[in-house]
Amino acid sequence: MTGKTTIIVHSGDMDKVISAFIIANGSLSMGMEASLYFTFWGLNRLKKGGLDKGPLSKMNMLGLGRRMIKGRMVKANVATLETMVKDFKELGGKIIACEMTMEIMGITKEQLRTDWIDEFGAVGTYVNEARKSDITLFI
């Protein structure tokens, strides 16, 4: 493998999490490594049953816009978030969960999809990943 992409997933918005996984899976497919660091609102998406529960970043309209986009995604044959995570893990992608966010929001390991999470870490873990990366993004 050559090169690496590291993405901070700060937002828990559905559209932004989808973007993060598309970029990460694209990177893995192009022969790179990929790490996703979930922090703040992003961490909610790693909760059991929480992956696709995020609102839309714009035009959510109390969930109406979100439902509409989901329907359009099915029509356009866009993979579901569940499939994206499955592919991400199959291609060797790494998921890091922010410990400080867990503390602030009172989230325990038992509430999280630990089968997806490779590591629990803090900012040092991110910097260590990012310094070896060719692409790093904050979403």
């Binding site: 598309i22 899976n25 893995l28 497919s29 044959n77 592919d87 199959e90």
Partner: peptide, 17 residues
Amino acid sequence: RRQNCPVPLVEVRKALR
């Protein structure tokens, strides 16, 4: 066929592995 971004790319990578 009919699969959208980035599925064809991902499927090729999975198969190559």
